[in-house]
Design a protein around this nucleic acid. Sequence first.
DNA 1: ACTAATTGACCGACCGGTCGGTTTATGCGA
DNA 2: TCGCATAAACCGACCGGTCGGTCAATTAGT
Lengths: 195, 195
Amino acid sequence: MVGTSPKANSKREDIVEIASRLFYEQGFGATGIKQIIDEVGIAKGTFYSHFQSKEELGLAWLKARHHIWNQWFEDAIAGKGSASTQLIATFDFLASWLKECDYRGCAFINTMAETPNAANPMRGEVMSHKQKLHERFQELAGVHCQDSGEAESVSQTLGTTLYLLFEGALVEAQNFQDSWPIDAARSSAQSLLEN
Amino acid sequence: MVGTSPKANSKREDIVEIASRLFYEQGFGATGIKQIIDEVGIAKGTFYSHFQSKEELGLAWLKARHHIWNQWFEDAIAGKGSASTQLIATFDFLASWLKECDYRGCAFINTMAETPNAANPMRGEVMSHKQKLHERFQELAGVHCQDSGEAESVSQTLGTTLYLLFEGALVEAQNFQDSWPIDAARSSAQSLLEN
DNA sequence: ACTAATTGACCGACCGGTCGGTTTATGCGA
DNA sequence: TCGCATAAACCGACCGGTCGGTCAATTAGT
């Protein structure tokens, strides 16, 4: 065989895939290496031949999570018509995603919560992820303001406000284990978007 | 002496006080009993004569935190004039509090993040705290709407929107380790309050 | 036969929690 | 005021288990 037939996951990918699920469901700190290697079906030493440390695996998790989550986000708003329709669709996406994950919340926010040390590299991944999401909201708001003839300065403010509502709804849905905050945020967003 | 002169803290209060600081700064899961008793200056057995378990101490922490934080909140908005002025003052309070705690964020949100098990009693404390804060925002919004002759149905929506902005700003200030989200939320709130 | 990958026993440190023993405080009869 | 019994508070060694991480030995692939 040249190159292994059905392109099975590499062992490193297996580790990241399984660790990602456990880190998200249980938290990074609460998940031990033992559980990860048991579920992957490898020995401790094999794991440490792929990763220098648990933290390196944590970084790989967050990097992968960033891409997967962004994909979900973009898929959910793609081809939804106008920018304002897309912005509203982000709240529908939020509701269906959080319901599916049983209101476990955002991997990045949860990780930041258990990472008080400013020097922890995982913090950088959180900030970078949120930075890009914020920019995406501003981009969508920018298109909306162009569509409706608003000033550019307004779009910055609007994008940030919608982003804060999105994040607020996300964390409150987790706190209350219910989607009512998302419904409320969606309504607020609708009011903000109709001039 | 009748009743011990300067009314020194009871040992149980000492434990809660010190544990509260450590739980908040480092996280509940990341803080060990050992560190708590060392800093209080008591032995393990003494601790377990005051608390059945670490979780019971965690509950005592959150209950105490609820009262202390509410006090901060109320003190910061008391005597600020109209309800709309008070609502804006909540964002000023948010900014000064988060700066003071070095953007460690909300003890309840952080605890929820590291508590995926739905049966964990600490979750109830989080939900109860946030429920009351949400109600407080709705109450303030209700007064504002009365002042400005708005309908009652609007005040519910307004209170929830401001609450979501408040919480969103709180968690994003933590993510970015900066107060710009609070400034942005304050501006949004101001727009929402001037009809 | 040689190399690369994999193994799991093992390391010291720490986890939450228990328990038998010791110290300290109190009450009381004399 | 003293001696003593009782009880409450406190102590820290110790429990089994888990933590992240290492490494010499073994296996598998070529």
